[in-house]
């Protein structure tokens, strides 16, 4: 099966700083991949290159076999992307916001309406769907944000630390949703996180980067085997210890 996401020797330099170097991995439909790495490892930078927000200084990224660099609009159409430094329009209600972005993705009207109803239902947005986004709690905002990334029913979902700042209940809700997206709707999902337990529970494979370089790409067992450890946390520490 062709990969839904492919990073091919991605590299990014900011002036003298090599934020990402020679990072390659693939994510297939229905698969969940966790992106791990300490602070400043280059996770956000890598994901931004997948979304076409940053131009790689080396290598290339593909979404559904479309080069993000050469066919940005086609690639973005198939992509739902969320990072922690994106906020919602404060003066819009969740439904207005979803409608606005649905229109930007040119989702046909009747389909958009149905889609929004589904998302409002699935994310339990109904209780606050007429409130301005600025009045929502962190967890409510995050639910709306993720619903926003899915409004055009993308085949590929890229989430940067989707559970950061949420309580256990809210995180759990989002994790369950990620699982359903992959297992039931066959989406390819990659998400970065600092919570190793999320990765252990959810992910088919992990990508571990450190100082911009790929340390590991494979399933969890292979990560344990490679470091001779019994727990992912210990394997992780060993890989990023230099």
């Amino acid at each position: 099966m062709p990969a839904s996401i492919e990073a091919r020797n991605l590299g990014k330099r900011f002036g003298e700083v090599h934020a990402v170097q020679e990072v390659s991995f693939e994510v297939h439909p229905g698969e969940i991949v966790g992106l791990l790495g300490p602070n400043g490892a280059g996770k956000t930078t890598t994901l931004r290159m997948l979304a076409g927000l940053l131009a790689p200084t080396a290598g290339e990224a593909f979404i559904n076999q479309h080069s993000v660099q050469k066919e940005p609009l086609v690639a973005r159409r198939a992509l739902g992307f969320l990072t922690g430094d994106m906020d919602l329009y404060r003066r819009l209600t969740p439904v207005e916001l979803l409608t606005y972005f649905g229109q930007l993705y040119e989702v046909p009207r009747p389909e958009l309406r149905r889609r929004i109803d589904e998302l409002v239902e699935a994310f339990g947005i109904g209780d606050f769907k007429d409130k301005h986004c600025e009045k929502l709690s962190t967890g409510q905002k995050q639910r709306v944000s993720i619903a926003r990334t899915l409004v055009h029913d993308p085949a590929v979902v890229v989430l940067d630390e989707p559970t950061t700042g949420l309580d256990i209940m809210a995180s759990e809700f989002i994790l369950q949703f990620i699982r359903r997206m992959a297992r039931e709707n066959g989406k390819a999902v990659i998400f970065s996180t600092h919570h190793l337990d999320e990765v252990e529970r959810l992910c088919d494979r992990v990508v571990i980067i450190h100082k911009g370089r790929l340390q590991h790409h494979g399933d969890i067992d292979s990560a344990l085997a490679a470091t001779n450890q019994a727990r992912l946390a210990d394997a992780f520490f060993e890989m990023v210890q230099f």
Binding site: L53, M86, D87, Y105, R148
Partner: peptide
């Protein structure tokens, strides 16, 4: 400042 610009750039809008 409101961090809403980036989202716009991930949409398939030129």
């Amino acid at each position: 400042e409101r961090r809403t610009l980036q989202t716009l750039f991930t949409t398939p809008v030129n």
